[in-house]
Design a protein around this nucleic acid. Structure first.
Length: 209
DNA sequence: GTGTGGATTATCT
DNA sequence: GATAATCCACACC
């Protein structure tokens, strides 16, 4: 069978971060482990706007060992460890030295679902495999070893999805878990596919009236 | 179904 | 020493 999939080129990432966050919805995140494809359709993202964004790890341009990969050129992975337990995956955006990124918060499991289930034994239902940033990294085997990887490589990358979502199907809200970030906490930088069952739980709860 | 608190440790001050 | 771009178990309705 010919490989008809299209990997997103580096130029895709080297643009305005909000645009990249919006356009990543509907694309397919791929991690190849032991020759096996683990893939998920991206349904929730957040933009992190670098030195001017108090919620971003590179806020104030205070470069540290952890944030080095944020300063790479758009099209690299920034994977960090948080709360002593979880990993979160970001796609770095813009040019080298402009430390911005898009956090992938939720995907719909597509390929390798059996393996994802074995990696996430506490998930009761299939949507629980990958409906959160830490969950999707666990399910897809994304760890610190993936930090700094080029998304042009053959291990970790994003493919053009089978479908695109129209603006009508997308909701923008403030980001999750960044209440400490003062004015930036309210910026509408979270993008979700409206009503998609795999969007993270925090969202549905938080924005109900 | 909803809400609350605890887990657990790299990272930076 | 405090914090963190989270998740889960458990109590309760």
């Amino acid at each position: 069978m010919p490989n008809r999939t299209l990997r997103l080129p580096r130029a895709f990432y080297q643009r305005d971060t909000e645009t990249v966050a919006r356009e990543l919805l509907g694309q397919r995140l791929v991690h190849v482990v032991d020759g096996q494809r683990l893939t998920g359709l991206i349904v929730e993202t957040e933009a992190y706007l670098g030195v001017r964004d108090r919620a971003c790890h590179s806020f104030g341009d205070r470069r540290t060992p952890r944030t080095e990969s944020l300063y790479l050129a758009g099209g690299h992975a920034y994977v960090y460890f948080i709360y002593g337990m979880h990993f979160c995956f970001n796609a770095v955006t813009r040019r080298e030295g402009e430390p911005e990124a898009v956090l992938v918060r939720a995907v719909e499991p597509i390929e390798g679902r059996d393996i994802m289930r074995s990696r996430r034994p506490s998930a009761r239902h299939e949507v629980d495999l990958t409906n959160g940033p830490g969950k999707l990294c666990a399910a897809m085997g994304i760890t610190r070893a993936c930090d700094r990887l080029s998304l042009d490589g053959s291990e970790l990358f994003i493919e053009q999805g089978d479908r695109t979502f129209t603006d009508d199907e997308i909701v923008r809200t403030p980001r999750i878990g960044v209440a400490y970030a003062q004015e930036a906490a309210g910026w509408p930088l979270r993008f979700t596919v409206q009503g998609h069952p795999c969007v993270s739980k925090a969202s549905t709860v938080k924005h109900r009236q």
